[in-house]
Computed example of a mutant assay.
Amino acid sequence: MGEVVNLRQARKQKARIEKERLAGENRALHGRSRAERQRDRLSADKAEKFVADHRREKLGDKDER
């Protein structure tokens, strides 16, 4: 015969395991050091400046025609 299982405890254990799995994924996605965040921020700023500098019309030029 099979083992007797308390369904309430099994459901809670399953929820705990799922919560821990989700926390692990979040740590992998968002757990970055300050230097990594700063490097990514500087890279994004540099790319934005590059695009802005190469626009044909500057943001304020539309009214000056």
Rank of each mutant, 00 (worst) to 15 (best):
M1I: 10
G2K: 11
V5E: 02
V5N: 01
V5Q: 01
V5R: 07
N6T: 04
R8Q: 04
A10L: 07
A10I: 03
K12I: 01
Q13T: 02
Q13E: 02
R16W: 04
E18N: 04
R21L: 05
L22Q: 10
L22G: 03
A23L: 10
G24E: 12
N26K: 12
N26S: 09
R27A: 07
R27K: 11
R27T: 04
H30D: 06
H30F: 11
H30N: 13
H30P: 01
G31C: 05
S33C: 05
S33Y: 14
A35P: 02
R37S: 06
R37D: 11
R39I: 00
D40N: 10
D40A: 15
R41P: 09
L42D: 08
L42M: 14
S43K: 15
A44F: 15
A44Q: 13
K46V: 14
K46Y: 15
A47Y: 14
A47Q: 06
A47K: 10
E48S: 13
E48F: 15
E48C: 08
K49T: 08
K49N: 10
A52C: 04
D53I: 00
D53Y: 00
D53S: 07
E57S: 05
K58Q: 07
L59M: 07
D61P: 01
D63V: 12
E64P: 04
R65I: 09
